[in-house]
Amino acid sequence: MSNYLENVKKYVDSPNEAAVEALVGHLGLALQSRDSAVVAATDPEELARIKSGYCSKTLDLTPEEADKAMDAVCAKMQGDTAKCRVTFYYLLAEASNSMDRLAA
Score class of each variant (00 low, 15 high):
Leu29Arg: 15
Ala48Trp: 10
Ser33Ile: 12
Glu45Gly: 07
Tyr11Ala: 10
Ser52Asp: 14
Gly28Phe: 01
Lys51Ile: 00
Tyr54His: 08
Leu23Arg: 00
Asp100Cys: 01
Asp80Leu: 03
Ser56Ile: 03
Leu91Ala: 00
Ala18Glu: 12
Leu29Ser: 13
Gly53Tyr: 06
Leu102Thr: 00
Phe88Ala: 02
Met77Lys: 08
Asp43Asn: 14
Lys51His: 06
Asp35Gly: 05
Asn97Cys: 05
Asn16Pro: 07
Thr81Pro: 06
Val39Lys: 02
Leu27Arg: 03
Ser2Trp: 11
Leu23Val: 00
Ala93Lys: 01
Ala30Pro: 03
Lys10His: 11
Ala22Glu: 11
Lys76Gly: 03
Pro63Leu: 09
Ala37Lys: 07
Val38His: 10
Ser52Gly: 11
Ala22Asp: 11
Arg34Gly: 14
Val12Ser: 09
Asp80Lys: 05
Tyr54Thr: 04
Leu31Cys: 07
Thr42Met: 15
Val24Glu: 04
Cys55Trp: 02
Lys51Met: 06
Glu21Val: 09
Val20Glu: 02
Lys83Glu: 03
Val20Gly: 03
Asn7Lys: 14
Met1Tyr: 10
Met99Tyr: 00
Thr42Phe: 14
Ala41Glu: 06
Asp100Pro: 00
Glu6Gly: 08
Ala30Val: 08
Ala19Lys: 00
Glu94Met: 02
His26Gly: 11
Gln32Tyr: 15
Lys9Met: 13
Glu64Cys: 02
Glu46Pro: 05
Val8Thr: 08
Asn16Glu: 09
Leu31Gly: 05
Leu5Phe: 09
Ala22Ile: 01
Asp80Val: 08
Leu23Ser: 03
Ala72Asp: 09
Phe88Arg: 02
Phe88Ile: 02
Glu45Thr: 13
Thr87Ile: 01
Val73Asp: 13
Glu21Ser: 09
Cys84His: 12
Thr87Phe: 01
Val8Ala: 08
Ser36Leu: 08
Asp67Gln: 08
Ser14Gly: 09
Tyr90Asp: 01
Pro63Asn: 07
Ala37Asn: 09
Ala75Phe: 07
Asn7Val: 10
Thr42Ser: 15
Ala75Leu: 10
Leu27Lys: 01
Ala95Pro: 06
Tyr11Ile: 05
